[in-house]
């Protein structure tokens, strides 16, 4: 019983620490360095802008579809159908 209480307290402390970490990361934008464009405004390593991607995907539709399946939130994908 005592062991359960101690384990319960440890779990609660860990939960509070995790949520506290999320709070700090969100308030301070601690991970904003990850939000810099890596390869331009396009489809990852395939192309770097909307016109460039439209041109590229015209001839390489399979590769583009494959990239878009793996990165569904990339809005360029909506414009290259």
């Amino acid at each position: 019983m005592k062991k359960d209480v101690i384990t319960g307290i440890i779990i609660l402390v860990l939960a509070i620490l995790l949520l506290g970490f999320t709070f700090v990361v969100n308030v301070t934008n601690a991970f904003s360095f990850l939000d810099k464009p890596i390869l331009g405004e396009g489809l990852g390593p395939l192309c770097s802008s909307l016109p460039d991607c439209q041109n590229f995907c015209l001839n390489s539709k399979g590769i583009c579809n494959s990239y878009c399946r793996a990165n569904p939130s990339n809005r360029i994908c909506d414009n290259i159908k």
């Binding site: 990361v25 939000d35 810099k36 890596i38 390869l39 990165n71 360029i76």
Partner: peptide
């Protein structure tokens, strides 16, 4: 839980590591 740390892409269509991690 990690979704709470790596938020969705901020600029539509831009390839970022944060966006990739979020996805």
């Amino acid at each position: 839980y990690l979704v709470s740390l790596f938020q969705g892409p901020s600029k539509e269509g831009i390839y970022t590591l944060a966006g990739q991690l979020h996805n």
